[in-house]
Amino acid sequence: MADGHVHALYLHGNSVLHRVAPQIKIVAAFLIVIGIVVTPREAFWAFGLYLVAIVALATVAHITPRFAARRMVIEVPFLLVALLLPILGGGSTVEVFGLSLSQAGLWDAWNILAKATLGLSIAVILGATTQMPELLVGLDGLKMPSIVTAIAGFMVRYIDVILSDWSRMRIAMASRAHGARWITQIGPMARTLGVMFVRTYERGERVYLAMRSRGYTGSMPASAIPAAPVSQWMLGGAVIAAVWAVAALAVLTR
């Protein structure tokens, strides 16, 4: 079960970033993004440094520009909103390529573009170097309550079952002329979803009862989580400290 369930965002590899303990990567990703978000938008140099650091991290993880670009498509709707701001904005305007654009709008657009893109790249790097089971180990390592890791663990194992069940049922629907293109087809689609839910639940319940009868009491026995080595914490800490130092400097010199 471990290998067949690799999600689309994961990049096979054996780089340093792939090997760092997942709990360190989770903590680092959060703290780095916080550093980026508090940076004042006037500090272009700080965003330049973040970009350099992110490109360096991505290179270490063997992430190609193509892979990164495919992952970043998710941001497009927000980029479109951001691009509208200089056109819709009021206040003083500047000429750019013959277009009269709002100055405040340009600042707003830049702020969203820079922070959302950098934050997204951090998440892309995390996703590319961390498999979902590892992420669960990381959450366990961060002392998440067992009820949360139990739900998250089952969830991760069910997702692929649900998605493949769903695509099978959608093929069955399409071959019976229910292509799900138009809102009138939401009825059959909704009923299919309902049936799928019960079907998957009953399968999951069978598996769960089988696990119970073999001694499962709520947590996986062999998940002896190796404590993250101090050297890795120091490495992660150094990256976080560098980002926060840049952010602090940018805030102080604004």
Partner: peptide
């Protein structure tokens, strides 16, 4: 617990499936 996990997986998967409006 399995029901909660299945609901979570269902919500997760359903958020990937867009339906027409």
């Amino acid at each position: 617990v399995p029901l909660a996990a299945l609901s979570a997986a269902f919500v997760f998967a359903a958020q990937m499936v867009n339906f027409p409006v």
